[in-house]
Design a protein around this nucleic acid. Structure first.
Lengths: 334, 334
DNA sequence: CCCATTTACGAAAACGGTTAAGTAAATAAA
DNA sequence: TTTATTTACTTAACCGTTTTCGTAAATGGG
């Protein structure tokens, strides 16, 4: 209630608010003895500055916003951990804004950011089409934007990705070497950068091995687990079902396992499975899951680092960072 | 840049800033025609209010802070999803502050919150001792605080928990019925509310079945996976190793599996395992993991709901909500 | 000793949105 | 018709911090 402000501090110390402010900022204009008095009084009165007054005046919020589809996903939660590690180190706060995979929500969030709530934005776009206008507006306003993982190809922003194309190539190649000839590729949205890239890598591997690409092998899934499992059971229930499956996002790999369980299909005998996944439990699954493991934590760190570089320079940094994923062969493709 | 403020809007419209402000707030003092003009001009100039100016004046940030140990954990990430769902609905923003299980960091975060950065706090405390003073100060300032999951028993705050004691009782009882006589209880910190409660439930079940509780069966683990696996291998490597294990937090269950894998121990033949866990993959593990599944999403929702109730009432709401967990029997205790 | 710096502080104006208090005109009540 | 009330605005202060611009005193150089 009767909040202790900088003016109250000043009154107690018989100083001006300006002097107190400068003393707290350790300004060279203030004598050591005064600084000491101010710090002591601040501690005694338990003074905590109002961050919003400061933000208003300095036009700087010391906050970054992380805009992403969801947090209950190993990749995203690990990425947040990486982002937060850097932010905390720099004395910044992290605002987590979830789009729930809805473009409209994403736009609303980004538009709101024009008000200056965050000094910079980290974004992994939702699976519906991203409207570049809000991003462009932010950039015009001088708010740095860094995309990570799910980037927007048309936009000139800093980007952090993994080697999606090559990873998908390796995954596909691995399945082919393991004997698969009919490989289904599960995706959540085809207008997502990671989907593009991964499908390209998939096609490339098929092509190289002389297997004809079939559009029907690209299986578009939804964000509803039940729907996907239903679909997967339909596909895997047929006599000529695929003998290999690539799950291009983590959740889908889990759903493939569930579908196979329910159908009584054996992995890897009946169908081999590989997933883009950051599950810590991948090696403990039944059977252990062969994964393309993305460097989630490192990608978060890298994205945050790029953002802070841009915040420092004031100049637009358009670096493109690629951090490779790792193919971890386990029993599901054995 | 040349940011469009409410005064610029006002100038364009030949109105006062006050009128524009009220029009945007849909005040009854403003005529419909003026409101329409204001809205149109605001859209035309792409006006976005400065949230910090508003927060400063209204002494209200429309932000809640979620203070928790980490986000890369199914329980916490699902809880955040629940919190965010409610917050988004109420037009609030969510600041995620990670303590990394360090009491000092937690204190620093809470102290900073005294400045008014958030209108309310949701917290699941870290495993080191929580200093109640910052919480008390926040409450004195009228900032509502809601604990969830890892609560602080001494403090009079609103709390959302699951039925930890009873869940642990059920878990222990289940192991005993499955034939276990030497049950180890893995914990991360004994001064954590959930540890207390769960150990009580564990003791109760042992007692009821005439099994003598041994202090040495409570295994204190760390936050470092390697250390824990090393310790677990030492314990499970002995001839007279426990025949049942209760992992009181998610990560520990995974580590038990890893230790058993490395030792070549068979679950459930050599040792039965049950874990407090929200892993979506629990049923897909090898063998599938018997879990106490906490209602993470619902707990997040409930905690946020309590917080907003307190924010509405302005009166301290000290409700205690208990949402039961569910014992899901699977093969690891079979 | 005089003038130029340097040191240490203060006054006041921002930052941008909100709101209490006031006012002129229009409408309603008597 | 006169007074009371409502309608639709405006003025100006305010939220708490920061920062620019001054200024008096202390210090230094010649």
């Amino acid at each position: 209630m009767g909040n202790v402000t900088i003016r109250i501090l000043a009154r107690e110390l018989q100083l001006s608010a300006a002097t107190v402010s400068k003393a707290l900022a350790d300004s060279h204009e203030i004598s050591q003895s005064t600084k000491k008095r101010v710090l002591e009084m601040a501690a005694a009165l338990n003074y905590t500055p109002n961050p919003y007054a400061s933000s208003l005046r300095r036009k700087k919020s010391n906050t970054i916003a992380v805009v992403l589809p969801e947090v209950a996903d190993s990749f995203f939660s690990q990425a947040i951990d990486g982002i937060e590690a850097i932010a905390q180190d720099k004395g910044y706060h992290v605002l987590v804004c979830l789009t729930h995979e809805r473009a409209l929500k994403e736009q609303a969030i980004l538009h709101e950011m024009l008000g200056g709530r965050a000094d910079g934005i980290l974004i992994s776009s939702c699976s519906e089409t991203t409207d570049p206008s809000s991003i462009l507006e932010l950039q015009e306003k001088g708010v740095p934007v860094v995309f990570f993982d799910r980037i927007c190809e048309e936009l000139d922003t800093a980007k952090v990705v993994t080697d999606d194309r090559n990873s998908a190539y390796k995954a596909t190649d691995h399945l082919i070497r393991s004997g698969c000839r009919e490989i289904a590729f599960l995706t959540i949205s085809e207008n997502l950068s990671i989907s593009h890239e991964r499908i390209e890598g998939y096609k490339h591997a098929l092509d190289e091995r002389g297997i004809k690409f079939k559009m029907t092998d690209i299986i578009p899934c939804t964000h509803h687990a039940e729907d996907n499992i239903h679909l997967l059971k339909k596909i895997l229930g047929k006599k000529d079902h695929p003998d290999g499956i690539i799950a291009s996002v983590e959740k889908l790999a889990v759903q493939v396992y569930q579908a196979c369980h329910e159908l009584g299909l054996k992995i890897p005998e009946d169908v081999k499975v590989i997933g883009f996944s950051n599950l810590v439990t991948a090696s403990l699954l039944n059977p252990s899951l062969t994964t393309i493991t993305q460097p989630a934590f490192e990608m978060g760190r890298a994205a945050a680092t790029l953002l802070f570089k841009a915040l420092g320079n004031k100049g637009a940094d358009l670096s493109q960072v690629v951090i490779p994923s790792e193919l971890q062969v386990r029993d599901s493709t054995g």
